[in-house]
Nucleic acid binder design. Sequence first.
RNA 1: CGGGGUGUGGUGUAACGGCUAACAUGCUUGUUUUGGGUACAAGUGACUCCGGGUUCGAAUCCCGGCUCCCCGACCA
Length: 417
Amino acid sequence: MKQSELFTKTRKEAPADETSKNAELLIRAGYIHKEMAGVYDLLPLGVKVVENIKEIVRQEMNAIGGQELMMSSLQSKDIWTTTQRWDDDVVDVWFKSELKAGGEIGFGWSHEEPITEMMKNHLSSYKDLPVYVYQFQNKFRNELRAKSGMMRGREFVMKDMYSFSLDAEQHEAFYQKTIDAYHRCYRRLGIGNDTFVTFATGGAFTEFSHEFQTICEAGEDEIYINREKGIALNQEVYNEKTLKDLDVAENELEKVRTAEVGNIFNFGTRKCEEMDLYVNDEAGNRIPVHLGSYGIGVTRIMGVIAEKFSDDKGIVWPEEIAPFTVHLVTFGKNENIFREAENLYHDLKNAGIEVLFDDRDIGPGQKLNDADLMGMPYRIVVSEKAAEKGGVEITKRSTGDIEFVDPARVIAHLTEG
RNA sequence: CGGGGUGUGGUGUAACGGCUAACAUGCUUGUUUUGGGUACAAGUGACUCCGGGUUCGAAUCCCGGCUCCCCGACCA
C-alpha cells in the first residue's frame, strides 16, 4: 500500500505511561494503540502482523487435523458451575456481568467448559473420535496487574485448541503431535531457537502440563535450560529428583528469563466426567472422553517478537510475520526517479510481494527513520544516488547488508532470498 | 491485593503559593531543503485527572477518589 494513505503516524517519543520496550516500539511505529492498562487496539499494521501470526498457526493446526471454529465470548454461568470453576475464589480472572433480563454471564477467559458442553451435541460414538477443534479468539482475563505492554493483558488474542480423544493412547499421540506442531510454529515465527518446552506442574485442574517458553528479558518466568541436551525445566520443578530423572547436572544448566508463548494441558477424563460427555464404545459401554487443551498467545507473541527483534532504531520483523516484505522508499525532486519507484511498486505488487511504498512528500531523513522504526525486512531505496551506484539500493533490516540491484532484477533478487 | 511512584495542549517536558501556564515536537500556511527527523516565518492547539478544602490568591499545599507505571503476590 501507499504510505500516504496509511492513516497511522510514527512518533519520535513513546508515551510516558509505557515503559516496556514492546509497547513503546509498537506504539511509536503505529502498530497498536493503548485503550487502557492491558488493553490495546490493533491498528492496520498491527492487524497485518497478527493475521500473519494466525495464518502460520492456522496452517500448522490444520496440518495435524485441527478444524477451525469460533466460540462466543459471552459464556453461561451454569456451564462453569458444573465444574466448580465459576467461583471467583477458584478462578480469579473472571470478568462477569449481568443480563438485563436477569442472570449472570461471564466473559470467556478459556473455553474448555463451553466447548465440552457443545460437543455433547455432536459426539456420541467411539466412531466420532478423535476430534480436534481450535479457534482464534479474544480472551478476557481480569488480571490484578496488567503489565509489560502486550505481555500480560486483560484482553488478548489467543489460539486455543481442544482435543477430544477416545482413550489415553489416542490422546497421548495427539499431545505429542501438537508439541511438534508448536515447534514448527515457533520456528516459522522466528523464535524457534529460543523457545523451549518445559515441564511444569498442572495446577489444580490438570494432571500435568507443558509450557513453551521463549527467552525474553521482559518475560515473567525463569527456566533452566541445557541447549545441547534440549532440556528445559521450570523453576517450580527444579529439584534433585527431576535433575536425576533428566540425567543432567546442576552446573550444566543455564538460568534464563522467559515469556510463556504456549501452554498445553491434559485434563484426562475428569472434565468430561464432570460435564457428562460420554461416548459408546464398540461394546456399547458409556466411556468418558479424554480432553486436552492447547493454547498459543497470539498477541503476546507479537510483543515477544517486537521485544526480541529490535535495535535502537526500531523493530526488526522476521520475514514471515512482517506486515510488508518490502518498504519501498524514494526521495528527491526528480520525477523520473519517482516514476521508476512507482513502477517498481506495481511490479512488486503484481509479483505478489507485500510492499509499503513511501510516496510521501517529506525529507529523506524522516523516511529512512520511519523505515527503520517500522521494521520491514527489506528496504528498497530508489534515488539518484542509488541509480549512480547501479540501480536501486536493497538493505536487509536484520543485518544492515546493502546491495545495489538492477531494477529489473529486484523481484528475482528477493524471491531467490 | 500489599508496597512505591505518577498525572500539565495530540506527544515529550518546564513553571517559588503570585503577571496572560512556558519550551520542544506535532499539525496548518508560505519560502527553503532532498541520503538520516533541513532552515526560517506566521498560525493552531490546555476547564493543569476528578471532587472537596486551606488561602486575598492553588498546576503548586491538605483530604478523598480515579488513572497509569514499577516491585511483590497471582498466573488453569
